[in-house]
Lab assay of single mutants.
Amino acid sequence: EVTIKANLIFANGSTQTAEFKGTFEKATSEAYAYADTLKKDNGEYTVDVADKGYTLNIKFAG
């Protein structure tokens, strides 16, 4: 089991951190699915992958 950390960075400057656990593939998939649910209210997003994929910096356009 691994932990994927998602740093969520919103257009208004606020930030939030979420963690997803499971296999690497499952946790990564859940992180992207979570970002997709936030897209409606926060706009499109870009992802900067860090720490060999264990950290995702997800920035929303607003």
Score class of each variant (00 low, 15 high):
13 G>R: 09
58 I>G: 00
16 Q>C: 05
14 S>Y: 12
8 L>N: 02
59 K>F: 09
50 A>N: 08
4 I>K: 00
3 T>M: 12
11 A>T: 12
1 E>V: 07
61 A>F: 10
56 L>R: 01
49 V>K: 08
2 V>E: 14
7 N>G: 02
31 A>Y: 01
21 K>P: 05
57 N>K: 07
3 T>H: 09
34 Y>Q: 03
39 K>E: 06
29 S>F: 09
18 A>L: 14
14 S>W: 14
16 Q>K: 09
4 I>L: 07
9 I>C: 05
59 K>A: 10
1 E>C: 05
19 E>V: 13
27 A>D: 00
51 D>W: 02
12 N>M: 07
45 Y>I: 03
36 D>W: 02
19 E>F: 12
27 A>N: 01
42 N>T: 04
54 Y>T: 07
35 A>Q: 00
10 F>L: 09
15 T>W: 14
1 E>I: 06
62 G>K: 09
60 F>Y: 14
49 V>S: 10
4 I>T: 01
13 G>F: 07
39 K>F: 05
5 K>W: 12
20 F>D: 00
43 G>T: 02
26 K>A: 15
15 T>G: 08
59 K>C: 05
20 F>Q: 01
28 T>C: 04
40 K>T: 13
33 A>D: 08
45 Y>F: 10
52 K>H: 13
24 F>T: 05
26 K>E: 15
7 N>W: 08
48 D>S: 12
54 Y>D: 03
7 N>M: 09
45 Y>H: 02
29 S>V: 10
32 Y>Q: 04
36 D>F: 03
27 A>W: 01
41 D>A: 15
24 F>W: 15
14 S>H: 13
3 T>K: 07
55 T>A: 06
58 I>R: 00
4 I>H: 00
29 S>Y: 09
20 F>I: 03
48 D>T: 12
55 T>W: 06
45 Y>S: 01
33 A>L: 11
13 G>I: 03
31 A>N: 01
44 E>G: 09
4 I>R: 01
25 E>Q: 06
48 D>E: 15
34 Y>F: 13
42 N>R: 11
15 T>D: 08
26 K>F: 15
18 A>V: 14
52 K>P: 04
33 A>W: 06
7 N>V: 13
58 I>E: 00
37 T>D: 09
50 A>H: 15
12 N>C: 07
14 S>I: 13
46 T>Y: 12
17 T>G: 10
24 F>L: 12
9 I>G: 06
61 A>C: 05
17 T>K: 11
3 T>R: 10
58 I>A: 01
39 K>C: 04
40 K>N: 09
43 G>H: 02
10 F>M: 11
